[in-house]
Write a protein that binds this DNA or RNA. Structure first.
Lengths: 367, 367
DNA sequence: CTGTTAGCGCGTTCAA
DNA sequence: TTGAACGCGCTAACAG
């Protein structure tokens, strides 16, 4: 019987057509060895005639032991991860650097299906997910990941793959790109303190895996797993130990607005005179809420953010914030990956945020 | 001499340790055949002892002829592509659908290094880029891509990979997810016409590969390669044939503002009474510019956008716009990919935009 | 410069 | 239910 599927040509087919050996044909394509120009042309011609589209990348990556793919692990769905400008900038930085070794990025979502990690579901049906632990990658970058990934990480290590984390809990065998979340927030808080603020509230990024919203309780803190949120909270409370904190369900303007509406519902004498938001988007939401409630910023309410992204449409405000070098963090992660792939040891990199004072902070109203 | 690199254990090693054959061990891992529970346990135990991290995905994908990876091709750098909420939503839709077959997404940037395609650079150094034509993917989705990719596309076809494009120029062998850019814009323009507008200006998305900014000339149109921008322009000019058009260098608020400042610099009697922006972000920029110039929207200037993304911080405006189902478009692309991978024929899907009238359009000022 | 040989690590026959 | 043998498509060594 004839071939159903007119089997794709293989390198051997091309070689045969061109009258050379397979290895010669291989060299003609990869350019990694000396081949006579005439031979090369003959091989390429044969390839064209057969509609051969080049060596199969799968076979190549098996043979070479490298796939040229770097995994980027996010713990939310794409929509959420990329709604955050910080993530985009970091991602871009990684792409920039690994572009130098001509690798590409594979988006891996740490499946929320295993809420607490550990137990790997038995395959009831023959599914073969491309997961963190099971993807043809040469290395992985974790973006703001929680300890939930501990198992995946150890699997990666067993496979001998370099792992870099941009913020997040340090784990054995993971190079962490650090950010001074705690100290930076403390610096921001101190700025408020110096201006005379005493009643301050905090709006945090999601603390726990479920993105619980609301007043931050001891219970919530106990299950909190976001290093970034916890560190920033710690920094704020280093200056204002008793400040109330509200967890947002995500780093969005709407979430900031929602939390602020609750915070600001107190009568003027009791409500906070300043709000520390853990991201610029949250801070913008605070400003929106204040506008709606007729509370003037910064005269009656000071607002400070974190990130230093230029939020579109904030004019005439210029947010007081802690500017973090997100793109540079991504690049550092990318460089670390490249170095480790080349067999070198990458060193820990720590980044610092800079307090940028805008016009959303001022001394509290007298009285 | 001892092994320098303490070679990673392979499936055979595990099998040997467990005292079974390699094929049995394979079955124990993949679950795609009957294995006695006791044997399975023994294999898993051996794996744990050896720190075996599971079958090598590279070998697996060679053997199976599938990598479980879908390429998503963008024609800008990551930073730009993901700054556009439409792209994010589409991306999320793709991820959602291909998640059903447990595949993951590989970001492939169509390198701007080969400006006009065709000539593939000779490798001066032995680089092995992971490019569109040379990546271990099972299928590809092109996001808003231009004819520049023609060569890549034919390479993909030669390799027998399904290719789906979300908007963009149709090519032989590419399934296009269509969007009624032309008709939708025409509907929006008609809305303005009905309100009495006659002097209208257009701000387009980047038309050409170089993202040229400024007045849209015949020359620029001639080298224009963005189907989306061209189609929307056509729709607007179907109603306002003589409307001046300005190309933005990207779909950003700042670009819209910049173009609008130029457009609105004319004296009141001559300047347009309405601006058709080809994206919501551009439209927001127009509103910002109008605010700065003290031109009331919509009383003295009407603004219409495209996309229907809820732009944060636009309050109290609600943009009149053409709402496109970006997430659904992504899902349709994902579904098409899945169907084609399963051997089926996917049909063309066409999406329609809906005119959503907000408070940024009104009749032109009298006189 | 080119051909020969020998696997990369796994999944899938086929027989036992 | 398990084991033995083969080959996926390519490329790294060598030898010529």
């Amino acid at each position: 019987m004839p071939d159903q599927d007119p089997a794709r040509p293989t390198l051997a087919d091309v070689a045969a057509r061109a009258g050379v050996s397979a290895s010669t044909a291989s060299l003609a394509f990869s350019g990694s060895g000396p081949v006579a120009e005439a031979t090369r042309q003959r091989v390429l011609a044969a390839a064209r005639e057969l509609h051969y589209a080049g060596p199969d990348p799968r076979a190549r990556s098996l043979r070479r032991g490298r796939s040229g793919i770097i995994g980027v692990v996010i713990e939310e769905r794409v929509r959420e991860a990329f709604r955050d400008p910080i993530h985009i900038a970091q991602f871009d930085g990684i792409a920039e650097e690994i572009g130098h070794i001509d690798a590409a990025l594979l988006i891996l979502a740490a499946s929320p299906a295993h809420p607490l990690g550990g137990v790997k579901a038995m395959p009831t049906e023959p599914v073969r997910p491309v997961t963190v632990e099971d993807a043809p990658i040469d290395a992985a970058v974790l973006m703001g990941c929680t300890p939930r990934l501990a198992d995946s990480v150890s699997a990666l290590r067993d496979r001998g793959l370099p792992v870099v984390a941009i913020e997040g809990f340090p784990a054995e065998g993971v190079l962490v790109i650090e950010q001074d979340n705690r100290d930076a927030t403390e610096r921001g808080a101190r700025h408020l303190r110096q201006q005379g603020h005493e009643r301050v509230a905090i709006i945090t990024l999601p603390l726990d895996a479920a993105h619980h919203r609301g007043l931050v309780t001891q219970e919530l803190l106990a299950i909190g797993s976001s290093a970034t949120a916890l560190q920033r909270l710690e920094g704020a409370r280093a200056v204002f130990p008793d400040a109330r904190a509200y967890a947002a369900a995500g780093s969005y303007v709407d979430e900031g607005r929602r939390a602020a509406l609750e915070i600001l519902s107190l009568p003027e004498g009791e409500r906070p005179t300043a709000i520390i938001a853990q991201s610029d988007l949250l801070a913008v939401g605070v400003i929106r809420a204040a506008e709606e409630l007729g509370i003037a910023v910064p005269d009656r309410l000071s607002v400070i953010g974190f990130d230093g992204v230029r939020v579109d449409g904030l004019w005439p405000y210029e947010l007081t914030t802690l500017e973090q070098p997100a793109y540079e963090k991504g690049r550092a992660a990318g460089r670390a990956i490249v170095r480790m792939l080349e067999g070198g040891e990458a060193e820990v990199v720590a980044f610092t945020s800079v307090l940028r004072v805008g016009n959303t902070t001022a001394p509290p109203p007298a009285g």
